[in-house]
Each structure stands twice: as structure tokens, then as C-alpha cells.
Write a protein that binds this DNA or RNA. Structure first.
Lengths: 97, 97
DNA sequence: ACAATTAGTCAGAAAAACAAGACTACTCAG
DNA sequence: CTGAGTAGTCTTGTTTTTCTGACTAATTGT
């Protein structure tokens, strides 16, 4: 349970590890994402995994949870500044692959 | 078993997923790495995982396996050009974390 | 010749990640 | 007040990943 590894990138890599986090992150680039929408739109997604992925992305400071009060009350997850700073790096990764 | 997801970075993310690949990759930046050395030096490492990680990094074209013949015959894994092209990206990741 | 080192493979067990379905709780439209 | 939608949690089971220990096989040191 101790996490003492000397690789700083590993933490970041870990934040986007897992089956759905990269996909959720990518969708968040294009605007706020919502739980039920992700569940419907991502092929093979299930409640548990999406819920955990969202919670972790939030804990890692990449997404921010907004409770939208007016009209039809719902919850939106939007990219934080930290999340946005990752975008440029991912664009480079995409060029490389 | 079909892999048809619209996230190009996900493939790269996957190549460095797993418990030891990022750490092995990072060590390879500083010079050739060897199986038994990784096993000794990486905390918590086990034969199987290190062997699989090396094999996959090699298959993905990030590391190259060299059989060093003279003196004490052994095997070295060195970064390929493709592997080196990832370095710049990782340096940015490290700044971010 | 014998033991150690290097570089693995293989089978099985243990741990972690993922998935399915039932259930909760609140809101909103009719 | 009823039904549908959103946003989950909880429990259980399956699948994937990781770990352990035994084994192989070639080379090198004494």
C-alpha cells in the first residue's frame, strides 16, 4: 500500500488508466459530460465503472463536479485547468501513434 | 475482443500501462536496462511481470533487445528512436504532476 | 566438477479491475 | 400520485492482472 516510486509520470499515467477514463477525458474536452450520457454513449460502459472513473478523475483534479440547479437539476463534469493542461500533451501523443 | 475505440491516445496509454512499464521505460532513458537488474532494483518487481513488460515494450517498438556477446554474455534493452520520441512528452508530464 | 549468475518459462494462486442487477433517493412532467 | 429520468450505491460474480515458486538452460567463476 505504500506508493513510493520515483517516476513522476507514472502518477499521471495512472490517472488515465482503466477502461473508460481516457474516453471520458476525451469527451470532456468537447464540453461538460454527464453520468447518464456517458453510460448511454460509451460502448460497453456500466454504472459502477463510470461512477468510479468520474470519482477518480475528480479526486485527481482533472474534472470538476457541478451541480446544475435550475430547470432540470442535474450534474455536470467539466475539465479543470489542470485537466486542460493535459490536452496539449495528449495531442502530441496522438500525433505519435 | 474487438478494439475499435475512437481515442488515439488510448493505444499509447495502453503501451505504458501496467505496474512496471513506466518505471522500466524511465530507467531505459538513462541507459540500457537488464532483466535481472530490474528485478533487483524495482521494489516489488517479480520475474513474470518484468519479463512480460519487457516483451511488450519490445513488441511495441519502444525497446530493442541486444544480445551482448563478449565477456559476460548478457542481454540489454535499449530505447529505440520511437521510444526516444516519447521522452519529450514524458518530460512535460513530469512538469505537470 | 560445482555453485552462482543471467535470462527466462510455466502453472497455479491471489489480488485487483470490471460488470450486472437490484435497490435508493430526489426531481420533474402530466 | 404515478411514472420516467438522473445519479448514484451495494452485493455478487466474472475476468484480467499480478505474484509466487518451481523449473530450464546456457555461461562463468573457483
Amino acid at each position: 500500500m505504500e506508493n513510493e516510486n520515483g517516476c513522476p509520470a507514472q502518477a499521471l499515467l495512472k490517472t488515465l488508466s482503466g477502461k473508460f477514463k481516457p474516453e471520458i477525458f476525451r469527451r470532456a474536452l468537447q464540453g461538460p459530460v454527464r453520468f447518464s450520457e456517458l453510460l448511454r454513449d460509451i460502448d460497453g460502459a456500466n454504472k459502477q465503472s463510470v461512477a468510479v472513473a468520474l470519482k477518480e478523475l475528480e479526486e485527481q483534479g482533472l474534472l470538476h463536479k457541478d451541480i446544475i440547479t435550475p430547470k432540470p437539476l442535474h450534474i455536470e463534469y467539466t475539465l479543470t485547468p489542470k485537466g486542460q493542461s493535459l490536452v496539449a500533451i495528449f495531442q502530441q501523443l496522438e500525433l505519435l501513434s
